[in-house]
Amino acid sequence: MLDILHRYWTLFLVGSWPNGPLGGFAATLILAGSGILSSFPLAIGLGMARVSPLGWFRWPATVWVYTFRGIPLIMIIFWAYFVMPVMTGYKVPPFATALCAIVVYESAFLAEIVRAGLHGLPPGQIEAARSIGLSYGQAMRHVILPQALVNMIPSLVNQFVSTIKATSIVYIIGVEEVTFAALQVNSVEMTRALQTFLVLAGYYFVACASLTYVARRIEMHIAQRRMQPAGQKTLVAGVVESAG
């Protein structure tokens, strides 16, 4: 296994670069990272629409989320592959197609993370914000979203891990990421298939396990910061004496 790693590690890591487009695990990370970043603004809009009191924001967002969470990523990729050349009139390169499919796919999951983040704040926050005269939009911008976004960070990192794993299927439409590299190696080194694919698994394992660990540490850090100060009661009792 170390032999495979030794011989082909550049192919696994960056594909045929610099003699070709950037591929390998670098392409995997770029695809996953830009997918999530591009999807996030859309997801914030969808997440807010999902909790909106207005029906005609809420229902379309709900349909969007249920649809793209209910079908496999590969179906979304096929749709993108089919629809995008028709929509743009150009032959769209596989990387761009895969990126659009991932943006749409992730938007549904990120929207649910945003929704959970918004729901996770005490209702008193939005009440207090409205009570001092802030409009719904101002309350969201200055009070709710700053707090909710910080709380979402561990979930967002975990979603990034999921996205990295999800990109492993895009080789099917010709994107030259790390799984594609492994298949290339396998076609040459046919007798050492197990080692080849375990090396592939190893790349993903190292990246995903590290990121999951980071997410857990962030979560613990946030939980510590939320500890209540001393002196705040949770029980309400009938107070008997005046405290003048």
């Binding site: 005490p122 207090a128 009570s131 001092i132 005269g133 009070v143 707090q147």
Partner: peptide, 20 residues
């Protein structure tokens, strides 16, 4: 409604300060 609320002070049982 925002103008109305800006003209009325409200103090909550749970304080509801903005923690950030």
């Amino acid at each position: 409604i925002n103008e109305l609320r800006a003209g009325i002070g409200f103090v909550f049982q749970q304080f509801n300060l903005f923690p950030h």
